[in-house]
Deep mutational scan, measured.
Amino acid sequence: KLLSSIEQACDICRLKKLKCSKEKPKCAKCLKNNWECRYSPKTKRSPLTRAHLTEVESRLERLE
């Protein structure tokens, strides 16, 4: 599967780190437990900047 097509777990399953069936409108866990089942939009991760990478590398060197 391509990364862009990976389905996201519902908010509660993601928060509780449960295996989500990803069914809509309610996944199996939410249906069974009568929880409100919501699927928040995916958040875009910002790409690493060179400055951040350099900072992490220098912190790693100090720890070694």
Rank of each mutant, 00 (worst) to 15 (best):
Y39E: 06
I6Y: 11
S58T: 11
A28Q: 14
E55K: 09
E23T: 14
N33G: 12
E36I: 09
T49Y: 07
P25Q: 09
A28G: 12
E61P: 00
L63N: 02
K42E: 05
S40F: 05
R62Q: 13
P25H: 01
K32P: 01
R14G: 02
K16T: 01
L2R: 11
R38G: 12
K1A: 15
W35F: 14
E61I: 11
E23A: 13
R62L: 14
H52F: 07
K1N: 15
C30P: 01
K42V: 05
I6T: 11
C37G: 06
Q8A: 11
E7H: 07
A28D: 10
N33Y: 10
E36M: 11
E7V: 09
E64K: 08
K32L: 08
S5E: 12
S46R: 02
A28N: 10
L31I: 12
L63W: 02
E64M: 15
L3T: 11
Y39Q: 07
W35K: 12
C13S: 00
C13P: 01
E55M: 13
L53M: 14
C27M: 02
K42A: 13
D11Y: 08
R38F: 13
E55P: 01
Y39S: 06
R38C: 14
P47L: 00
C27D: 09
T43V: 12
L2C: 12
K17S: 04
L18I: 11
Y39C: 02
C13E: 07
K22N: 06
T54Y: 08
K32I: 11
S21K: 01
C30Y: 06
V56T: 07
S58M: 13
C37S: 06
I12F: 14
C20Y: 05
R59G: 06
K32A: 11
E7T: 08
T43E: 15
K24P: 07
A28K: 14
L3Q: 08
C20G: 06
S21Q: 03
L60T: 03
R45C: 03
S58N: 12
I6E: 10
K44D: 06
L63S: 02
K24F: 15
R45D: 01
S21P: 04
I12V: 11
K1F: 15
I12W: 15
S46F: 02
P41W: 06
R59I: 00
R14Q: 04
K1L: 14
T49V: 08
T54F: 05
P41C: 05
R59H: 06
